[in-house]
Amino acid sequence: MAQATWEAQPITFDTTGLEHLDGTRWFDPENRDVVVLNVGEALPRTTHWLYEIEVLRRELAHTHAVRPVGGPAPALDPHPTARLLEADAVVLDGCLALYTLVAEKLPKAPTGRLFRASFVLAKADRTAVLTGQFEEWEISGMRESLVRFQMGGGGPEAGGHPYDPELPYEASDDPAWDEQFPRHPLSKARAWARTVRESAVVAREFKALRPFRTR
């Protein structure tokens, strides 16, 4: 197999435990976990970027929690199909990147969630996005139920989101519970993200490109 050029694969990382599927996709043969690297000309659609991370966090949290309605303004969805859990400005091999962690309901399934951990490296004329997808494909809801029991009850998806207390948030999604549930897909998503941050190598040609600016 020919070696990928830096334009096609500007990021390399530790793929221990993963098998190469094709192009820039890898998978875990023991489950449905998938890692995908996309490179394209689409740039982030935001008036803010990593130099305004607090504003960007709130903007992204609302983007995932809002659904369009028939009136002049959108409305918060009390049961959104996707929810931003984390967003931060991080450094991958000396290159500034946006890290996000999103929880999504599995399509066409009554229960279960998919967790996407992503790193977005944006330049003036292209964007590289490395995403790990970790699916809840066996017993779902166990983490949520046990955490609610340990916290003394309480309903699901109460307010208290870390980026806006008015947005819904599942208490069991807090990273403090990852150690108790190491095989849960959310815990695995965060562990994979840590591995990427420690092992990622960004091509020097990509680093040298002009940076992305919103203004």
Rank of each mutant, 00 (worst) to 15 (best):
A2Y: 05
A4Y: 00
T5L: 10
Q9L: 13
Q9A: 15
P10H: 06
D14V: 01
T16C: 07
G17Q: 12
H20Y: 09
H20T: 07
W26M: 12
F27W: 13
D28V: 04
P29Q: 10
E30K: 15
V34C: 14
V36Y: 04
V36S: 15
L37K: 09
N38G: 14
V39Y: 09
A42S: 14
A42V: 13
L43V: 11
R45M: 15
R45C: 08
T46K: 07
T47S: 13
H48M: 12
L50D: 11
E52L: 03
I53N: 04
E54W: 05
L56Q: 06
L56K: 08
R57E: 11
A61L: 04
H62V: 10
H62S: 05
T63V: 08
V69G: 15
G70I: 03
A73Q: 08
A75W: 00
P80T: 07
A82D: 06
A82E: 10
L84S: 06
L84K: 02
L84P: 10
L85T: 00
L85Q: 09
A87R: 01
L92E: 03
L92K: 00
D93N: 11
C95N: 03
L96G: 12
A97Y: 06
L98W: 02
L98Q: 10
V102R: 01
K105G: 14
K105Y: 04
L106F: 04
P107V: 09
P107K: 10
A109Y: 07
P110T: 13
P110D: 14
T111K: 13
G112C: 09
R113I: 05
R116A: 14
F119N: 03
F119S: 05
T127I: 06
T127L: 06
T127N: 05
A128M: 04
T131W: 09
F134Y: 08
E138N: 12
I139V: 13
S140E: 11
G141I: 05
G141T: 03
M142T: 12
R143A: 02
R143Q: 02
E144P: 00
L146A: 11
R148K: 10
Q150V: 13
Q150N: 05
Q150H: 10
G152S: 11
G153D: 05
G154N: 08
G155C: 02
P156G: 14
P156W: 00
A158V: 09
H161M: 07
H161F: 11
P162H: 03
Y163E: 09
Y163I: 06
L167W: 06
P168R: 00
Y169T: 04
Y169Q: 02
E170C: 06
S172P: 07
A176W: 10
A176E: 08
W177G: 03
W177M: 09
E179K: 13
Q180N: 08
P182N: 04
P182D: 07
R183S: 13
P185E: 04
L186P: 03
K188D: 00
K188N: 07
R190T: 01
R190A: 06
W192T: 00
A193K: 03
R194P: 04
T195Y: 04
V201D: 01
V202Y: 02
E205F: 05
K207N: 07
L209R: 05
R210Q: 10
R210T: 11
R210P: 00
R213P: 00
T214M: 02
R215F: 08
